[in-house]
Design a protein around this nucleic acid. Structure first.
Lengths: 342, 342
DNA sequence: CTGCGAATTGGCAGCGCTGTCAATTGCGAA
DNA sequence: TTCGCAATTGACAGCGCTGCCAATTCGCAG
């Protein structure tokens, strides 16, 4: 049978408690004792039983990632998971995935429910959960630890943030510098903070370029490929269509490109397209997509690290601002000579 | 404080053990008693403590998914995770992600290690782990339960399989029917069963079409975008280049398309391209990619279901063959008139 | 040497649940 | 009504670990 802490204690000639101290890196263990214990543990191939540890210590050593179920499978989430896993691994924590329905009647209840059932020591929230003030407030009330990954920082104390507004502004700067004047935006879905910030940045950019905001050049979209197609249809049907389209994320940007190609437009000669996120797909499409890189993997890792710090001692852990980067690739080019098309 | 089983027992006027029976759906509980317990539990908002349950029951209620670390983040894995999560959810199991290095010195040891540490009740293996006879043998030796997701079925008893060889054959049939005679293959990476099966299917297809196998039209690739580019370069540099390229998966197919476009080739007019997997990206590129759909999400779900069945009682659980589907999209078309290009 | 505070180590109850087995109850046949 | 067997329920000892606190040892000043 598998070795227990008692066996290790006996073999090392110490008490169980001392073995426990060694395995938990607690102070006040003599170096010599520690070595003896470690050797004994090694010899017996001892591994602490996680369930027993959790039960006795009243902690789960579990962190759950809460995200919107329909986005399960998105590259964004996947990268965050990878980063989170790295951090958990090194701290001997486990990660648990909690795809929940944000749109469901009461997402606050579903998060509470998830906590009650699995008892994670902490949560990592991504948009739209991370942007939901009511949820964060309730979690504070419950005394739950959590970290957020989001552009918004107002309500957050621990996690990562990225200045999406500034990034979106730079996208428009880039397009304006290429001579574009009719720059459209396929906005994100309503409940997402991402929508608001990216849209604000878009307007900032227009302002800086001295371009008047034109309501007809902003269409409601979503974060999906299909939403990009729909948005592009609407924009390219305009009497005076845009020469550049900034989509709220890479998936929808791919949709825009797809629709443009269907209409025989060339990218970037006839139409420039920009995305947001820098997903692997954005590199794989042709022409490769100009986009804003969010370091999702690092964001996942940092959020988890900060969360674990705040679990270790309350008050620790902070909101880490991570850098974005405008990745200029092949889908943007100089604005075409101004002629009414269509 | 949180309600314990004892509180529920007291409130319902039964013993702890009876409450336990109700929560574990054990037989021999009178309907009336069950209702009384359920009502009491509801009133107290009782949730069994997973750690205590695991400790006392000597089970972890945990399933771990073992996959190759470099493929973390691939759409294939992501979809499998989603499916696996669905199955676990409904059986009140937790899923744990174990990205391990397949190429590391001893992947068998790293899997053993992972088992010792986390004590999952079962494992789900995907290629290349699923195809590694030595690993499976060792797991059998250890009495570990596992399910495999793979094309290969020889060593597997529980999990899902898909006839990749037949599917790859159909790809070639499709291309041959379009008049292609010079059909190339960018093969998968060596340790993957996928490589072997897809390559065999490719040869089957050629045979059926009466096309002689030409060594120069098969290049070693990999499952990455970059591998696709490299493979395409090699093939398109040939004196008599292929008119169709069948890549081992969608990512590498995207690489092939990318390189083709860089050379000014039109798809599918000048070159037909086919992938394998039907990842979301394959729909998002332009032209959309003809590929073989693997129902990854269902595969993940089914594998988990079969695994859980075999955990419940040894002997249960089987190898479920899942269907593939050739998705003919826009990246394949009639072979161009035969002229030496370059 | 001796005494004393600090450093180190040990003892043990108990975390919340399930497995085992014993006790009790229910129910149809005699 | 009574008996016997099956169905139902209960009692209780752990599962393997950590928290709490007591015991022991150490190092060094007096």
């Amino acid at each position: 049978m598998r070795a227990r802490i008692e066996d290790v204690a006996e073999k090392a000639g110490v008490s169980m408690k001392t073995v426990s101290r060694v395995f938990n890196h607690e102070p006040n263990v003599r170096e010599k004792t520690r070595l003896r214990v470690e050797r004994a543990a090694q010899a017996l191939n001892y591994r602490p039983n996680p369930s027993a540890r959790s039960l006795a210590g009243n902690r789960s050593y579990l962190v759950s990632l809460v995200y919107d179920d329909p986005f399960a499978g998105s590259a964004y989430i996947m990268e965050i998971i990878v980063g989170m896993l790295q951090a958990c691994e090194s701290m001997r924590y486990s990660a648990m995935l909690r795809p929940l329905e944000f749109s469901s009647a009461d997402h606050v209840a579903s998060v509470e429910n998830s906590i009650a059932q699995y008892r994670p020591d902490g949560l990592i929230l991504v948009p739209p959960f991370a942007d939901d003030a009511k949820l964060l407030h309730r979690l504070d009330e419950l005394g739950a630890r959590y970290a957020t990954i989001s552009a918004k920082s107002k309500d957050a104390r621990v996690g990562t943030s990225l200045d999406e507004r500034k990034a979106a502004g730079e996208v428009v700067d880039h397009l304006a510098a290429l001579g574009h004047r009719r720059i459209a935006h396929v906005a994100g879905p309503a409940p997402h903070g991402g929508r608001v910030w990216r849209l604000s940045g878009y307007r900032d950019g227009l302002r800086r370029a001295g371009i008047a905001y034109d309501d007809s050049l902003v269409v409601d979209g979503g974060f999906s490929f299909e939403a990009g197609i729909a948005g592009a249809k609407q924009l390219l049907d305009l009497d005076d269509p845009p020469t550049a389209i900034f989509a709220a994320n890479d998936d929808s940007a791919c949709g825009v490109m797809h629709e443009a190609f269907e209409r025989g437009l060339r990218i970037p000669q006839d139409l420039s397209v920009v995305g947001f996120d820098d997903t692997p797909t954005s590199r794989q499409v042709w022409p490769s997509l100009t986009t804003v890189r969010q370091p999702c993997r690092e964001m996942g890792r940092i959020a988890a690290e900060q969360l674990l710090a705040s679990i270790r001692d309350a008050g620790a852990g902070s909101l880490v601002r991570v850098p974005y980067e405008l990745m200029v690739r092949q889908s943007t080019g100089p604005a075409p000579a101004r002629t009414k098309r269509r």
